[in-house]
Nucleic acid binder design. Structure first.
Lengths: 336, 336
DNA sequence: TTTATTTACGAAACCGTTTTCGCAAATAGA
DNA sequence: TCTATTTGCGAAAACGGTTTCGTAAATAAA
C-alpha cells in the first residue's frame, strides 16, 4: 500500500494535476463523468492528500490546539471530549498540548503557534501564569484564542467559565449549614482566577455568616503530591483543627482523605469535606464525596463551538462572547 | 506582533532566504558573525518558521500520533503522560486521536495518516477492532506503528503490553484465596487481546483450583453506562449470585460498586471485588479497592522510546522489540 | 451561418521552507 | 607571485498540493 501523490494519480488518469485536484474538490469546472472517474481511481490507488501541502497553500491548518495543564484530570479529559466532539464534526484535528502547570511551557507552546501550526486555540492557563503577554502576542498575530475554566482576566477575548465565586460560596455555605465553624480552604495557585474567585466566595460566605477568616486555614498546595499531603496533614494537626475543608481542586481529594485516615479523623464526624471535582468515583468514596461538579463537557463544547464561529466568520468579535455555565453542588455523605 | 516569514526576515537582514535558513540551522556555511546577527533579528522580529512548509519540504512532520479509545481513563491519560515526556524531549508533537471504541473511527484515523500527517503511531486498539488490514496498510506505507496495551496479535510489529494472562490469573487466584467459589468476570470485548488474555488467566486459575467456570458469570459490557449498570445488577441478582467479581476494566468499577449498594450487598462480605484499574482514588473508595494496577506511564514511555528509535534508525526492525511490563496486584479492603 | 457563451480542462504560479549547486572573494600553499 | 583551496553566500529547485487564468471545443444565441 504505497503512498501515492496527486501527480502520480494524475498521470494514471491521463489528466492534469489541477484537474484532479478540482475533481476531488467537486469543482464545477469538472464534468460529472470525470469526477466519478477520478474519485474511483483515487480510492483504488489509496490516494490521501498530504495535509502539509494543503495547509501550506491554503494558509490554514485545519487544526486547533487545546492547551491545558494536565490530561490526567477528570475536568480536562471531559472538556477534551466536548471539544473533540465539535472539532470532529467540523473536520478539524485537535492538538493537545500540556503545560504541566509551568508558565514556561505555556509560553513556548503559544510561541510555536505563531508559526501557523493551528488555526485557533482553546486554553486553560497554568497555575503559574500571572502575565498574559504571550497570549496577547498570539491573538494580535491573528490566531483566535478562547479561554475555558482558567482564564487571564485581563486578556480581551471570549472566556467560557463556570460560576466560581458562587460555587466557592455555595460550598462554604453548605459546610456552615452543616454546622462547621472553622473551615479550611485548599488552594493551588495565588494567581489563578478560578482559585481567587473560589476563595472570594469562601470569604464572602464566612463574612455573611459572621465567621472569622483564619489565614492559617488557607493552604496553598502545589504540584508535588508528597508536599501537598504533608501540607494537608499539617493543616489537620493544627491545634485549632478545621471542622470542614473546601478543596478547590480535584487532585487534592485523595491526599485529603488519606490524611484523615492517617490521623484517624472521621469524615464527616470530625471533618466535613467538599471538593471541586468531576470524579466519577465521588459517589463511591469512603464516605461518598460532596462535590462542586463543573459542566466540563459542556464548557469544552461551548468553547469549541465559539472558536469555530470565530474561524468561519471573519471579523467575528470574540470579546463580547463570554459564557458562564453554572456548576452544581452535589451533596453526599462527606458533609452529612 | 505580526507574523513574519523567512523572506521578510531575509529582506530585513539584507541576506538571501537560503542564507537565513542556513544561519538558523547553524550551518557551517555561514559565518559566526552572520549567524549571531540572524538569530538576533529573528528573535527581535518574532520569526517562527511555518511548520507546514518545513514538513512539506523535509517530508517529515515531527508529529507522532497516539490513537486510543478514550482519554477519560486513568490508564490512557497516564500513558499519554509517558508518551509526551519522551516526545517533548525529542522535539516532537503528539497528536491524540480518539476512536471512542469504534472500529470505523480507528480505520478513518489511520487512513488519514497515510497522507503523511504523522511520522509514527502509537496505538491501543478499539474494543470493536477484530481485523487489522487498516494497520497493515499503514505500516506497509512506511509509517511505523507500535501497539501498547491493546494490540492486534496478528500484526507483526512491536507491542508494549503488560502481563494480562498472569494478571487475570493473579486477580482470580487472590479471590479464591480469600474464599470465593463462584467468581464473575466483567468483560468489555470479545475481540480485544487484553480481554481474552485476562479471561484466559481467570479460567486457568479456576481450573488450577478445581473450580467450574460458569458462562452466566462472564458478562460482556459495552459503551453504554446505563446498560452496563443493568447487566451488572442483573449478574448480582442471579439466584446463584457470585461471591467475587473480577472487573477487567476500570470504567466498570463505579457501576459495580453502585450495584452492590443498590442491592445491599456488602463488599467484601457478600461480594469481593478486584478491578483492573489505575484510579488514584482506589485507596479511598468504600471500601478501598483491590486492583491490578498497570504500569501505564512506563508503558507509554517505553512505547514512545521505541518509536523514536525506529524513526531515527532506518531499517530498525520493530518486529523483535516487544516488551512486557508486569502489572501489580494491590490488595485492599474490597477483598479482605 | 456567424458570433457569444459555456464547458472542461491544462499550464503555471504560489504557499514557506530546506537543500543542492554554483560562484565570487578570501585565504593558503607552493 | 601564481595556483589551489576554503569560506561565505545567493539562485533556484523541490516538497505536494490549490487556485488563478487562459483556451480550445462544444453549445447556444442571433
Amino acid at each position: 500500500m504505497k503512498n501515492i501523490n496527486i501527480k502520480e494519480l494524475a498521470r494514471e488518469l491521463h489528466l492534469s494535476v489541477s484537474s484532479v485536484s478540482k475533481a476531488l474538490h467537486d469543482s464545477y469546472e469538472i464534468s460529472e463523468k470525470t469526477k466519478k472517474r477520478v474519485q474511483k481511481i483515487a480510492a483504488k490507488l489509496n490516494y490521501v492528500p498530504n495535509p502539509y501541502a494543503s495547509s501550506l497553500r491554503g494558509r490554514k491548518s485545519k487544526n486547533i490546539a487545546v492547551v491545558i495543564p494536565e490530561v490526567a484530570d477528570s475536568f480536562f479529559s471531559l472538556a477534551i471530549n466536548g471539544i473533540e466532539s465539535v472539532a470532529k464534526e467540523k473536520g478539524y484535528h485537535v492538538l493537545i498540548c500540556l503545560t504541566h502547570e509551568k508558565f514556561e511551557n505555556e509560553r513556548d507552546i503559544l510561541k510555536e503557534f505563531q508559526g501557523g501550526r493551528v488555526d485557533g486555540v482553546l486554553m486553560s492557563v497554568s497555575g503559574e501564569t500571572s502575565q498574559s503577554g504571550h497570549v496577547r502576542d498570539l491573538i494580535s498575530g491573528g490566531i483566535p484564542l478562547i479561554f475555558f475554566d482558567r482564564v487571564c482576566e485581563e486578556v480581551d477575548t471570549a472566556k467560557i467559565t463556570t460560576d466560581d465565586f458562587e460555587s466557592g460560596y455555595k460550598a462554604t455555605e453548605h459546610l456552615i449549614e452543616q454546622g462547621c465553624k472553622k473551615m479550611a480552604f485548599l488552594n493551588i495557585s495565588k494567581s489563578l482566577s478560578i482559585s481567587n474567585k473560589r476563595l472570594e466566595g469562601y470569604f464572602k460566605a464566612l463574612a455573611d455568616n459572621k465567621l472569622k477568616a483564619d489565614k492559617k486555614k488557607i493552604i496553598l498546595c502545589g504540584n508535588n503530591a508528597k508536599q501537598n499531603y504533608a501540607l494537608i496533614k499539617n493543616l489537620l494537626q493544627q491545634k485549632d483543627r478545621p471542622d470542614g475543608v473546601v478543596s478547590s481542586v480535584e487532585k487534592l481529594t485523595t491526599p485529603l482523605y488519606k490524611a484523615c485516615v492517617a490521623l484517624k479523623l472521621k469524615i464527616p464526624g470530625d471533618v466535613k469535606i467538599v471538593c471541586f471535582s468531576n470524579l466519577e468515583t465521588a459517589s463511591i468514596l469512603n464516605p461518598s464525596l460532596t462535590t462542586i461538579t463543573q459542566p466540563a463537557f459542556e464548557m469544552g463544547k461551548t468553547a469549541a463551538t465559539l472558536l469555530f464561529k470565530a474561524l468561519s466568520k471573519t471579523g467575528f468579535n470574540l470579546k463580547n462572547e463570554s459564557v458562564v455555565i453554572p456548576s452544581a453542588l452535589v451533596v453526599r455523605s462527606s458533609t452529612t
